[in-house]
């Protein structure tokens, strides 16, 4: 029962984050929102008795993926600045 409540709460936040990720104008915020979805998903995996998946999702899905996104954004930003010069 408690699980169900947790999942509903986490799920709602995830859906909101998903909408934000899609509709926020700022790309960095959007990437962070997508990372939050993954992070919360790893909590759900813990609730579903899948700790291996939870660790992996937290480390790769939310952690590294976000870093990779941010690196890409940084790269693009840099190009923008280069052309501005």
């Amino acid at each position: 029962m408690l699980n169900t409540v947790f999942i509903i709460i986490l799920g709602s936040i995830m859906l909101v984050a998903a909408f934000l990720a899609v509709y926020i104008k700022n790309l960095v915020s959007s990437v962070i929102a997508a990372g939050i979805i993954s992070l919360l998903a790893s909590l759900i995996y813990l609730l579903l008795a899948a700790p291996d998946v939870a660790m992996t999702e937290a480390a790769i899905g939310s952690g590294l993926t976000t870093v990779v996104f941010l690196l890409a954004l940084k790269n693009i930003k840099q190009k923008e600045e280069d052309t501005d010069d």
Binding site: A18, A21, V22, L27, S30, V31, A34, I37, S38, A41, I44, Y45, L48, A49, A50, V53, E57, G61, T65, F69, A72, L73, I76
Partner: peptide, 28 residues
């Protein structure tokens, strides 16, 4: 629907997370 390439990739990564949730739920 998103025109921005980065947004499209974010869309893909959301799909991916969704699919992973589905898979884990199948084993629960």
């Amino acid at each position: 629907t998103q025109k921005n390439l980065i947004k499209i990739i974010i869309g893909f990564s959301i799909i991916d997370t969704g699919v992973h949730l589905i898979i884990v739920s199948i084993g629960y």
